[in-house]
Amino acid sequence: MGLNGLIGPVPLSWYLMLSAILFTLGVAGFLLRKNLITVFMSIELMLNAVNLTFVAFSRHYKQVDGQIFTFFVMVVAAAEAAVGLAIILTVFKNRSTLLVDDVDSLRL
């Protein structure tokens, strides 16, 4: 690769790697964090990482379909955010907590 690689075009695998790293971080956030909102944001991060893969492959095959799929993911993410945040609001109203561990009344 060397210095020339730093100026020239970018290999497709770099984009996929970036996407993988972001997805891993999203999973890590999802598993490690206790705050409902932060957990939710980690899911959004994972969706974003997947979007990057779609767009990268759309560019690789020079077809627009991957971008369309990204568009649909965004729409679904918007719907999910609206409902999810409404659920979080309701949870907070009923239990006045945002910690996932404290929302455990279904546990045996």
Partner: peptide, 20 residues
């Protein structure tokens, strides 16, 4: 291209780590 990619990839990863 690669320089721009690396800069913004670094920003993205740094922000994602910060998120976690």
């Amino acid at each position: 291209d690669a320089i721009l990619f690396l800069i913004f990839a670094a920003i993205a990863v740094a922000c994602a780590i910060n998120l976690v």
